[in-house]
Design a protein around this nucleic acid. Structure first.
Lengths: 259, 259
DNA sequence: CGGGGGTTTGAGTGAGCTCAACTATCGTGG
DNA sequence: CCACGATAGTTGAGCTCACTCAAACCCCCG
C-alpha cells in the first residue's frame, strides 16, 4: 500500500464531476488504501467467473472489458481511458461476469472493494457518486447495444471513433486533432460485432473519403462533422460534465477542426 | 401516496436476495412514499432526454426499455418482469437516456427518487443493495450486447427465450411448462437486432424442430435442453439468488421438462 | 362483422462473412 | 544496427445470412 494518496486524484475528480463531493468526502476517497501496479498487454485484471477482490483505477493507458460466447467469439463491452474506475461492478456481484484486460501497457491503482464500500457507507454522497458511475456505465452499454444492434458497419465504426475521441478529451489526454487509437482492427471488430476484414475495408472507405487518416496507433480526424454525422453520434450517453444543455456539447466535438 | 407499504414488498424481497437486509432496512424500504398506477400499452414511464423524477417498481405485467438511432431504428435494451425496480438509473443521471414503456397493461408503484436515495443514505446496506442492482442491470446489458454482437439469429432468439423463462420463474410467475410471451415478433426483432420477417422464419424453424410451440401470448418449450444449447445460455449474468455454485442452476432450467 | 395489429409468405438483393494468402510494421535479441 | 519472428493490416474471390419490399392472411377485440 503506497501512502501517496494523490494517485487517486483522477478518480475523485471524475466522481465529483457528476456528484458534488465535499472536502471530507474527497479526503476519505484520496486516502483509500491502494497499491499501484504496471500491467502489460495480455495480463488479466479480472476474469469472468472469478470473484473480484479489488476494484481498479486506471491511471494511464487503455483497458477493455469483454466476454465470450460458448464457441469462443468475443464481444468487447467497453474501452476504458485513464481516470476510469473499472471493475467496481464485479465487486458488487458474486462473480465477475466479464474479463478485464489492458489494451496497452497500463498503470493502475488497486483498491480493495471493502475499503471503497466503507467510504461509501460513511459518506452517502460517495455512495451516490458510485451509483451514478454505475448508472453511467450502464448507459454506455445501452448505447453500444444500440450501436451493434441497429447501425451498419460504417456507422458503428464512426460512432466508436467519436466516443473515444470525446472520452480522451474529457480525460485530458488529447493534444491536437489526432488522438490515441489503442485498438487493433481485430479488436475494433470485436467491439462492433464485425469481422476484422470488414473493418479494414470500411476504414479504407473512410480514409478514401477524407474523413480520417491513421498512423501508428493514432487517428487523425480530418472531417469531424462527417464523422459525427456518419456515426449518428450524440454524446449524451457518456454523461460527461457540462452537457446539461444538449446541443451545445454535440457541436463542440466538431470544434477542434472547424469542418 | 397510498399508505399500503406492502405493495413494495416485491422490491424488498428482490433486493434482499442479493444483499442482506435487516428488519430496520426492510421497514424503511417498505414504508417509502409511493403512488400506484395502472398503465396501458403505449404509455411512457420515462422518455429519453427528459429528467426522470421518480423511480418505478413494476408490480404486475411487463415493461421494456429502448432507445433509437437518428433514423428511427429501435433497439430494446431490456425486458422487465414484475418485481423489477426500473428507472433507477435514469434518476441518478441528469437525463433519461432511454425510453421506458409498458409491454402489456401494467401496474406500477412510483417512488420519488429523493425518497429512495434518502433511505440509501440512512442505511448503507440499502445503498449497497441498490448498487448491486445497478451492477446486475449492467451485467444483463453486457450479455445482451454479446448476444446481439456475436450470435446468429437462432442463437439470439433462443437466448432471449431462456432469459425470459428463467426470470419469470425467479419472479414466481411461472406455472407449468409454458410462460408468458408479452413480446411481438417485431419487438423481438428490436431486442435482438433482427428484422421481424427474419424472426418469423427463425421461429418457424424452432417450431418445426419441436423445440417450442406458441399460442396467444405464451410460449411452451418442448425441449429445454436444445433451447438452452442453441441459445448458448448460461444464467450467471442474471445474478439470480442461489446460483453461487454455477452449473447447478444451469441444469435446473431444464428441470421443468426433463428433456 | 369490420378494422387493425400481428403474423406469414415470396422473390430478389446485398451487407458483411469466410477462407486464404500476402504485405507491412514493430519490437527484440544477436 | 540489422535480421528475424510475430503481430497487425490488406487483398481477392465466392458465399450466405439476414434484409427489403410487398402482399396476403389471421386473429382478436370492440
Amino acid at each position: 500500500m503506497t501512502p501517496t494518496g494523490s494517485a487517486l486524484k483522477p478518480m475523485v475528480t471524475k466522481l465529483a464531476q457528476r456528484t458534488a463531493l465535499g472536502p471530507a468526502e474527497r479526503d476519505a476517497l484520496m486516502s483509500l488504501p491502494h497499491r499501484t501496479a504496471q500491467l502489460r498487454r495480455g495480463a488479466f485484471i479480472a476474469r469472468e467467473g472469478e470473484k473480484s477482490l479489488r476494484c481498479c483505477l486506471l491511471l494511464s493507458g487503455f483497458a477493455y472489458r469483454h466476454k465470450m460466447t460458448g464457441d469462443g467469439a468475443r464481444q468487447i463491452l467497453a474501452v476504458h481511458v485513464q481516470g476510469d474506475l473499472i471493475d467496481l461492478q464485479n465487486g458488487l456481484l458474486a462473480q465477475a461476469d466479464h474479463n478485464l484486460q489492458p489494451l496497452t501497457g497500463i498503470e493502475v491503482a488497486f483498491i480493495p472493494h471493502e475499503a471503497i464500500l466503507a467510504v461509501a457507507e460513511a459518506f452517502p454522497q460517495v455512495a451516490r457518486a458510485l451509483m451514478a458511475d454505475l448508472a453511467a456505465t450502464g448507459s454506455m452499454l445501452g448505447e453500444w447495444l444500440l450501436n451493434v444492434g441497429r447501425r451498419n458497419a460504417r456507422e458503428r465504426i464512426c460512432h466508436l471513433l467519436c466516443e473515444l475521441a470525446l472520452r480522451q478529451e474529457a480525460a485530458g489526454i488529447r493534444v491536437g486533432g489526432d488522438y490515441a487509437w489503442p485498438i487493433t482492427q481485430e479488436q475494433l471488430g470485436d467491439a462492433t460485432g464485425l469481422t476484422s476484414v470488414h473493418i479494414n475495408r470500411t476504414l479504407q472507405g473512410l480514409r478514401r473519403e477524407g474523413i480520417l487518416s491513421t498512423s501508428s496507433r493514432r487517428v487523425t480526424v480530418t472531417n469531424w462533422g462527417r464523422l459525427r454525422e456518419q456515426g449518428d453520434f450524440t454524446p449524451d450517453y457518456l454523461h460527461l460534465p457540462g452537457q446539461e444543455e444538449d446541443e451545445d456539447e454535440a457541436r463542440s466535438l466538431g470544434s477542434p477542426q472547424p469542418a
